[in-house]
Each structure stands twice: as C-alpha cells, then as structure tokens.
Simulated assay, not measured.
Amino acid sequence: MKEDQRFGIMKKYVNVVLDIVLGMLAILILIFMIRQLIDIGTFINKPMTPKNLSVVMQEVVAFFMLFEFIMMVIRYIQEGHHIPIRYLILICITAILRQLMVIHGDAVQTLLLSISILALVIVLFVLNLSGNKSYSGFKSNKIDEKD
C-alpha cells in the first residue's frame, strides 16, 4: 500500500508542476496574442491593397490559432489533464475551415479539405450514435459498492 501512496503523492507533484508549466505557456501565448493584435492594428491603418488584405487575413488566422491553443490548455486543466476526443475533432474542423478561408484558386485542394471536414463530421456523428460518452471527457465518479 505504501507504493500506491508514494505514487499518489508523486502524481500530485507532477500535476502541480505540469499546471505551472502550462500556466507559463498560456502567459507566453497571451503575449504573442497581444503582439498579433498590434500587428493587425498596424496593417488596418495602411491602405487596403490585395497584398495587405492577405497579410491581415494571415495575422487574424494566426491570432485565432493562438487563441485556440490557450483554450486547449484551459480545457486540458479543467478536464483533469485529459483532452476529450470530441474536442480535438472540433479543433481539427475549425483548423481546416481556417485553411479553406486562406486558400484561393486551387480547386483540388479545396475539394480535399472539404472531404476531410465531411469525414470528421461523420466521425462525430458515429461517436454520438455509439452511445459511449467516454469520448466527451466526462468521467464517472461512481464508486463500486462491491469494493
């Protein structure tokens, strides 16, 4: 039983260190987000040429990627150091949608990205049909009465 207690204590320390490191990562990402906002603001003040519009779109996409990373870190900590599969699939869908917004003119790539979104939506649908809610990140807190 002492080994189980040692493992539990070690797990607590590892989780605390992990939370501290993830917190520092979140602060670093926030700093980069502020920098992205400043860059977007400087490009908005310039005359809107197609090149400037493209740069602004890239900066906005980069900003939302940073925002998504922060949300993933927060979700990871909230879920008890676990990221639900459903959440990861939704992140993939939004990343592909952002890529579709940036790409122009390549029909084959647009078709492939659209097919990948369809495939991910089908996976979400199958997960919902399966009735197994373990993919959503919710853990059962019931204790077996037999133990």
Rank of each mutant, 00 (worst) to 15 (best):
N15C: 12
I115H: 05
I9N: 09
H81P: 03
Y135D: 07
G131N: 07
V108M: 15
V73A: 00
D106S: 05
M71E: 13
I40Y: 00
K12E: 15
F69V: 07
F125M: 14
I74T: 05
M101H: 05
L124T: 02
I34P: 04
K51R: 09
K142W: 08
R86K: 09
S140I: 06
I31Q: 13
A107C: 04
I34R: 05
L37H: 07
I27P: 00
S140A: 03
L30C: 11
V126T: 14
G23I: 06
V108H: 13
M48T: 12
Q58A: 05
Q109V: 08
K146Q: 14
G105T: 00
L124P: 04
Q58L: 08
I77N: 00
S140V: 01
M1V: 13
G41V: 03
V108W: 05
F32I: 06
V108R: 10
I143A: 11
M57Y: 09
D19M: 14
R35T: 11
Q99A: 15
A95F: 11
L25K: 12
F125C: 10
L127C: 05
D106K: 02
S114F: 02
T49N: 03
F125I: 15
Q58T: 10
V73F: 02
D39G: 12
L53Q: 09
V56M: 05
L18K: 10
G105N: 00
C92T: 06
V17N: 10
H104K: 15
Q78M: 12
V60A: 06
M72C: 07
I74H: 05
P84Q: 06
I38H: 06
N141H: 15
T110G: 03
V123N: 03
F67V: 06
K142N: 08
S140R: 08
V126W: 07
S130Y: 04
F7A: 10
S134M: 09
L90V: 06
I83K: 03
I74V: 13
Q36I: 04
G137V: 02
M10P: 01
L100I: 09
A26W: 02
P47A: 07
L120T: 01
V121L: 11
L25S: 08
L30K: 08
V17G: 08
Q109E: 14
H81M: 13
V123Q: 04
Y13H: 14
L90A: 13
R35K: 15
M71N: 14
K139T: 07
L127S: 02
Y87Q: 04
G41R: 08
L111Y: 15
V21E: 04
E79S: 11
I34Q: 05
L100Q: 07
M1K: 09
Q36R: 13
Q78I: 08
R35C: 08
V60F: 00
K146H: 15
V60I: 10
N15L: 11
I117N: 00
M57P: 00
I91M: 05
D4V: 10
L127P: 01
L22K: 04
F43N: 04
I85T: 05
M72D: 00
Q99D: 11
L88Y: 02
I20D: 06
M101D: 03
L111G: 07
L18Y: 07
I96F: 04
S136H: 09
T49Y: 01
I77M: 08
K133Q: 14
I38V: 15
E68G: 12
F43L: 13
L18W: 08
I40K: 01
V16L: 10
I38C: 06
I122M: 12
K133V: 11
A95L: 07
N52Q: 12
I31L: 11
P84E: 03
D39A: 12
